[in-house]
Design a binder for these strands. Structure first.
Lengths: 143, 143
DNA sequence: TATTGTTATACTCTATAACTATA
DNA sequence: TATAGTTATAGAGTATAACAATA
């Protein structure tokens, strides 16, 4: 057990664990169709309905040109559309196409297969720990 | 609290939390000198002492050409050296230079600043949860 | 013939700087 | 003049295919 780690050791341990699991999730991902950035952007649009380039880049913590490129790829693939903002002609509102909406729904159903299998092998206590940790990590990430 | 999440919901929640925290850690990283892949590789070498291209690529779950490129960058920067394997002429043994060893030591001291600050603001119980979760995530990632 | 590493090539993500269009 | 988006350019990671050297 390591409940007695100092916060310094904990930050190191947590950083390594997150980096490593993130890497593994990428390696195990079934869905080879979309990159992480594309997936995250589609997910945001599915949750929020729409988003400007600026809002999307802010949320994903990348610069506008990076998000612009990601949106280009998604648009070329037919998953999103650029629409005009009625109130401000400078803005571009990105929305999911029907095809994009369908992709998000289908992908969600099958994409967690590898992780789900690992979690099923854990004890209920371990799963509860991860559930609580996931909430804390989300709060830290969005702080 | 979300201790009662189904394993399906948990896998989704955990995946999103890990992806988001990983992204945030990258954005907050003080150290602009080294990429994630370079940092991870130096860390492995610091822990294990040395590694072949094959071993490194296996551990980081990338293909040998990718690791070869990462090692090229580290070598050009003077942090690692390629040495010959006495027993097998095909193999290349990568080791830290003194400069690389120093960098790892210095970097470790200051690189967790952002995360450390967040963790200091949590309750002891929350830190214990993260410490336990970090262990579980490491096991999952390495399974 | 099989293994280890490298090179060649290509694609994506990331960034900064510079440009266009609109406010 | 300031803001939103785009384009140009470049650096780093990833991969597959093909090649060299060694076992």
């Amino acid at each position: 057990m390591s409940a007695r780690l100092s916060t310094h050791d904990l930050s190191t341990a947590l950083r390594i664990a997150v980096a490593r699991l993130s890497r593994r999730l990428r390696a195990e991902k079934e869905d080879h169709e979309l990159s992480d950035a594309q997936t995250a952007t589609l997910g945001y649009l599915a949750r929020e309905g729409s988003g400007t380039i600026g809002r999307l880049s802010e949320y994903e913590r990348v610069k506008p040109p990076s998000m612009n490129r990601t949106v280009n790829h998604l648009e070329e693939a037919g998953y999103v559309e650029r629409t005009a903002d009625a109130a401000d002609g400078r803005k571009v509102v990105v929305v999911l196409t029907e095809r994009g909406t369908r992709l998000v729904a289908e992908t969600r159903k099958r994409r967690d297969a590898w992780l789900h299998q690992r979690l099923a092998g854990l004890s209920p206590e371990q799963r509860a720990t991860l559930a609580a940790a996931a909430e804390i990590m989300r709060e830290i990430a969005d702080s």
